[in-house]
């Protein structure tokens, strides 16, 4: 690194800037520019066109419409519930799976990790189609199992009644999300020094105590980062819900992202759609900021004293 820095006649901070340039360029083109453009669109009455020059500037009217849309706020409530339940379940399952991979014999470890990652590798919209069949009340696996075991007399309507539909969607999402949560947490577990566990075992500490006093505190930064990523992902969840219930029954599984989607791609109302997108973005940003505020004290960054 120093040699490269000398050859380019750059000091280390300048070299760091050079390395950051490609990423900054990508962020500017694919993230900041679209965000800026969306913000601009949201101030115009854009219908079936994105030509700002020919359309009317409406200021914050589109935002006022968002605030007045009762369904948007109901969907906000559902999105929060969906996020809370799914991230909690994903974390529990993901942690369990991650711990399991460290308990099996090394020969099986790779296989187990490969099995765990499979749900993440399948595209969400295809998973939605698979789950739709599993939840089908006539020919689906779950209804059949419940009927055969005598737990129910009539096949349950998993996707046709509000409460089961909400939780069916969560189950499908958790199945996928637990896989990636587990992969994140495996990384954290791998960083826990083995000698600390060995020393605790010599001292007679039982497994639960070792987990609580050694594993968990050392994994805390990884856990916080994982929870932040999974929370942001859950707040933006769309494909699997759209594919599974289309937002139904009624509007009970309608999530925030569906508003921007529909106003953009179905109604071609780009001004209103942009206002929905910006409000959704602000809500996700706000929650992420809360997380990051909690996360930073647990992180030891390079250059900070330990």
């Amino acid at each position: 690194m120093r040699r490269l820095s000398r050859r380019l006649r750059l000091n280390e901070p300048q070299l760091a800037v050079l390395f950051l340039l490609p990423a900054l360029f990508g962020l500017a083109v694919f993230l900041y520019y679209p965000i800026g453009r969306t913000l601009l669109f949201s101030l115009y009455d854009l219908e079936r066109t994105t030509e700002l020059s020919s359309e009317r500037f409406v200021g914050l009217q589109n935002y006022a419409q968002v605030m007045r849309t009762a369904q948007f706020w109901r969907s906000f409530g559902y999105t929060l519930y969906f996020t809370l339940v799914s991230v909690t379940l994903e974390f529990g399952l993901g942690l369990g799976m991650a711990l399991a991979t460290f308990q099996v014999i090394p020969a099986l470890r790779g296989l187990l990790r490969a099995i765990i990652i499979i749900p993440w590798a399948i595209p969400a919209i295809i998973q939605a189609a698979i789950w739709k069949w599993l939840f089908n009340s006539d020919v689906g696996l779950f209804a059949d199992l419940l009927l055969r075991t005598g737990l129910v007399q009539e096949p349950p309507l998993f996707l046709g009644t509000p409460l089961p539909a909400m939780h069916s969607v969560i189950l499908a999402y958790v199945w996928r999300g637990a896989a990636i949560t587990s992969i994140f947490l495996m990384g954290g577990l791998a960083l826990v020094p083995r000698h600390l566990h060995e020393a605790a075992m010599v001292d007679g500490a039982r497994p639960w105590l070792r987990f609580r006093r050694i594993t968990l505190p050392l994994m805390l930064p990884t856990i916080m980062v994982t929870l932040m990523f999974r929370t942001i992902d859950a707040l933006r969840a769309f494909e699997i819900i759209y594919g599974l219930t289309g937002g139904g029954p009624g509007t009970t599984t309608e999530v925030l992202s569906s508003f921007a989607y529909r106003f953009y791609f179905s109604y071609a109302q780009f001004g209103q759609g942009s206002a929905y997108a910006i409000v959704t973005f602000a809500l996700v940003m706000g929650l992420s900021w809360l997380y990051i505020r909690r996360l930073v004290p647990h992180l030891q960054l390079r250059g900070q004293s330990g």
């Binding site: 509000p162 937002g247 139904g248 029954p249 009624g250 509007t251 009970t252 109604y267």
Partner: peptide
């Protein structure tokens, strides 16, 4: 002239009442 939106409204409200949500 806003048929897509009108259809979505009808779908949502009809389905809500058929599924006992409203």
């Amino acid at each position: 002239t806003n048929y897509a939106q009108l259809s979505d409204i009808l779908q949502e409200e009809l389905h809500a009442t058929l599924t006992d949500s409203k």
